[in-house]
Design a protein around this nucleic acid. Structure first.
Lengths: 191, 191
DNA sequence: AGCAGCCTAGACAGACCTGTCTGGTACGGT
DNA sequence: ACCGTACCAGACAGGTCTGTCTAGGCTGCT
């Protein structure tokens, strides 16, 4: 009956290493042996904290969710409209970084076809959080149909992540800003 | 020096089976043994037509590209504007089917992080074709800035594919239709 | 001192992976 | 009749994967 302390140093090193490798190279291509080698952790220790690889993958998704939630919390903005713009602007910045490899949730979902899998459910939880965030901000901003508009912002979010990964990472930023402004009911110049 | 006839029955069976399995379950999780078993082909025959698995994966991507190009060609429309709407409407239909598993190109890219990999280049070719298709149709439709608007339609395309896979598959359809109409300069009622 | 909990190091089993190789069948052109 | 090509069946090698197991070290609490 181990306490299984989630703040254990070895566990943290494993999760940090897994987060880095899974995001950069994919889930199925990165093996346990490599993770424990780069984390400097014994195999028995790994299996003490994570009973199976899928458990670690789920923890990776949840870790990414926490990080994104923290990143949104740290954004300062003068009201819901500015907060929405700030979120998408930040996404565009991150998407243009050299080590950007797309959305970790979309990428992981591509490797887990079964929607009932725990990993997929963790991904669903992230998406649900983000969608709710959009809805709440839109409601606060006085949007006429927050549910529908949030769906539209989800489209833009996912499209932005994919485009920064697969196409020119710098191209979508201005387009996205105009699109979000327009969605918020403020027609930008031109286009 | 084999002729390597691309219309060989055995080769076709392998490619069809691979297309089905890769799309439904992912590339790395489906092994050669399973493909040749379900295709009813000997291992030597497989390696005669495809020197390595990556060759088959590339052929799978190219096959998907051909199929999508054929599907677009088969759409009848009274002009470029209607053709654009028809393309997105068709995507919404396909996305709502039970066996929809997201965009095969986005999913495959998630399993091939290296942008220089031949598979990624085949994906890039598809995206380049689709983007050019959008630009040409927009130009014909008299769009003021076809390059920029095509970027916007790419966002919607990718967002639609992801949303139909990860969220409620029926939800994005009306939103997408309104969005495309608005992008084409025709404000739909409401929203 | 003694014990529990967390840790390291690494062998090991069993499955699965890609890719090669042997051996044999069938067809089609010359 | 002969030969090249395409095909089937399946053994095999060598590697990698997940997950288990043995054996022992270190720390902190009691």
């Amino acid at each position: 009956m181990p306490a299984n302390n989630p703040k254990s140093p070895a566990r943290s090193r494993v999760l940090d290493t897994a987060t880095r490798l899974f995001y950069a190279e994919g889930v199925h291509t990165v093996g346990i042996d490599r993770i424990i080698a780069e984390a400097g952790v014994a195999k028995a220790t790994f299996y003490h904290h994570f009973p199976a690889k899928d458990t670690l993958v789920k923890a990776y998704i949840e870790e990414q969710t926490r990080q994104q939630q923290a990143a949104v919390d740290e954004l300062t903005a003068d009201g819901p409209r500015e907060k929405l713009l700030a979120v998408f602007d930040r996404m565009g910045q991150i998407g243009a970084l050299a080590d950007f490899r797309g959305c970790p949730f979309i990428n992981a979902a591509a490797e887990y076809p079964d929607p009932a899998h725990p990993v997929r459910q963790a991904i669903e939880e992230y998406r649900s959080w983000f969608r709710t965030l959009m809805r709440d901000l839109l409601t606060d901003a006085g949007d006429a149909d927050p549910v529908r508009t949030a769906d539209l912002l989800m489209l833009i979010r996912d499209g932005l992540a994919v485009a920064c990964d697969l196409d020119d990472p710098a191209a979508p930023r201005p387009v996205v800003r105009d699109a979000v402004l327009r969605v918020l009911g403020e027609a930008p110049a031109g286009v």
